[in-house]
Amino acid sequence: MTTEGAAAPIASPRPYEEPLVSVRDLKKHFPILGGFFRRQVGAVKAVDGVTFDIFYGETLGLVGESGSGKSTIGRVMLQLDDATEGTVTFDGIELTAIKGEQLRRIRPRMQMVFQDPHASLNPRMTVASIIGEPLKEHRAAKGSARKERIEELLELVGLEPGHANRYPHEFSGGQRQRIGIARAIALNPDFIICDEPIAALDVSIQSQIVNLLQQLQAELGLTYLFISHDLSMVRHIADRVAVLYLGKIMELAPGEDLYEDPKHPYTRALLSAVPVPDPKVEATRERIILEGDIPSPAHPPPGCPFNTRCPMAEARCSAEVPAWRELASSHWVACHFAE
């Protein structure tokens, strides 16, 4: 780290080979309080023991249905929320073991882009002050240097220098997301968590933002965790993909392997449920229709979390939690019967 607070370049990273971020047995349980004394009567097991790495320069896609724990994983990784159990290590530093000033000094290297560009930008601040805020807070640049940096950032994300003195409401959703991205890259981070960055945008604007994220990744050597429920977009952008269900990872594999040869019954059902924008393909596709709803994370079923809806489930599935196994090279699955 330089004294200015902007991130130092990583010493000779080996792209796609060494983990930049490692998550081990991570759990996040939210207490459920009840009764007269507001005592803890249960817990929402939002994240219930996940393990994965994110390699330098890659994009890891994190997919899962609503409430599966995607955002919670992101928040705990950035230490915006405490972990209940487990560790998060970033570039060799165990984030779950440090606090205060130590943590504050690492923060600029890890950023987040949020889903809702309307809610995440302060309506009373100009674009320049929104983008300049992290520069100011971490004393990365001031005066004319800050002004220059803001202009440079605007250009990087495809906005104009003239936009600097305007307010968020004067921009469209896509432009607002560009402002959020400019703010996220202001301090030269190594790692960005994109939490549903396109979910609130129109289809024609989504591709603009995804193209921008890819271009910035190439130019700035960024590593991404891309959280989304859009499995088609994740296929497009991610190198590897993790599939989450009820706070646990069901399958983790390189994109091609996961989409062409899914091993877990949940991944198969999930992929088969995604409509493809091509009537010919749709007419012939086999669809696995799952029955029932996702159980509540406050009362996950015993054994495999998917056993209540799984077409392959047998007695063993509700008795025994399936092991996290590497079925083929880099292809991890949690299912008793996957092969």
């Binding site: 289809v203 024609s204 604007i205 989504q206 591709s207 603009q208 995804v210 193209n211 859009d230 499995l231 088609s232 977009m233 296929r235 497009h236 952008i237 994109g255 091609e256 989409y259 992929l271 995604v274 493809v276 924008p277 091509d278 393909v281």
Partner: peptide, 16 residues
């Protein structure tokens, strides 16, 4: 501008 679940590798057109 649509990515596809059954294909990878095309560039996404963006409507400016």
């Amino acid at each position: 501008s649509l990515p596809r679940l059954d294909q990878k590798g095309m560039d996404l057109v963006s409507i400016p």
